[in-house]
């Protein structure tokens, strides 16, 4: 099978797999909810893969934009807004709007500086969320009602929620693929390989990276907004740096720079956590060393083990 055929086959299989989850399980609520959770996180991971996988910028603040989207939905809901397009639109906007100034400052730097600074700004937003005493502070806030759309209840049942999120995941994935293949994506990818070359070719690379950073922020905002609708709850924990780390783990283990790898990674991490947690509450004692081994084996080692020949 040619590489290009594989590249379109695996995403198709993934999509079909998610579509069939409710059918195969007979609408089992636990499994469907697990799939929804995976898909929400997968959307955010796709956003991260754009900048991390293609732009080779290790952003450690991705959860902040995820959380911004969640809080946008949470806060608007408590003020009585219920229109799904409005809430989800606000979530995207919140993620993107925060990514703009943070990206503008962070992208002035490189390497470990960039990692630390995105981490620090993520933490800043985390603490900001904990200080929002009107919206629950440390404890977070519960959504009074789920969003509606033209009199319907898209997030009302696990089943319809599942397919709405799947449709959005597909949209984000296809949009991401278009961006990667576009003129813009070409500059971003080239910059990931050799920044000096791209500047010498005549591109102000930072501007391209900033736009990519903002797009990634918007996608994370979308994911966070959906996640808030899913859990009917928002808390500062959504913005924690451990969650940013988890997003990185998803993208890396799934294989950077393929987009569907991010989906695979999200599924892998969530399922692994669920599975390990069945054996012991201290499942991180196993998960942590696994990450160390994956890093030592070479970053894509585990990706190769999990999904042989996906790249």
């Amino acid at each position: 099978m040619s590489i290009s055929a594989r590249r379109s086959l695996l995403p198709l299989l993934l999509g079909a797999g998610f579509a069939l989850v409710p059918v195969v399980t007979g609408g089992d609520v636990y499994t469907v909810n697990l799939a929804i959770r995976i898909m929400c996180l997968a959307i955010a991971a796709i956003g991260l893969d754009l900048i991390l996988g293609y732009g080779r910028l290790v952003s450690f603040g991705h959860a902040a934009f995820f959380g911004a989207g969640a809080y946008a939905v949470g806060i608007l809901s408590t003020h009585g807004f219920t229109s799904a397009p409005l809430l989800i639109g606000a979530a995207i906007l919140a993620g993107a709007a925060l990514a703009l100034p943070i990206g503008a400052v962070s992208l002035r730097t490189r390497g470990v500086y960039f990692i630390m600074i995105t981490l620090a700004f993520g933490q800043m937003l985390f603490f900001t969320a904990t200080s929002l005493s009107a919206y629950g502070g440390d404890d977070g806030l519960s959504l009074p009602a789920r969003a509606t759309f033209l009199g319907t209840d898209p997030f009302g049942s696990p089943l319809s929620f599942h397919y709405v999120v799947l449709a959005l995941l597909a949209l984000v994935y296809l949009g991401g693929r278009a961006i990667v293949a576009s003129r813009f994506g070409r500059v971003l990818r080239a910059g990931g390989e050799d920044e000096r070359r791209v500047i010498a070719a005549g591109f102000p690379i930072t501007a391209y990276r900033l736009v990519a950073f903002v797009i990634a922020g918007g996608i994370a905002g979308l994911a966070g907004g959906l996640y808030a609708e899913f859990t009917e709850f928002v808390s500062p924990a959504y913005l924690s740096w451990q969650r940013s780390g988890e997003f990185i783990v998803m993208v890396v283990l799934g294989g950077t720079g393929s987009l569907h790898g991010a989906v695979l990674g999200a599924a892998g991490v969530v399922l692994l956590e669920e599975w390990l947690a069945e054996f012991t509450e201290h499942w991180r004692l196993i998960f942590g060393p696994l990450l160390v081994l994956a890093a030592l084996a070479g970053r894509d080692g585990l990706a190769r083990l999990l999904g042989r020949g996906t790249r």
Binding site: S182, R183, F184, R186, V187, G202, Y208
Partner: peptide, 12 residues
């Protein structure tokens, strides 16, 4: 040098 590179959808 030819056209804008802030084009996001058409495959380059």
């Amino acid at each position: 040098l030819e056209g804008s590179s802030f084009r996001f959808l058409a495959p380059a």
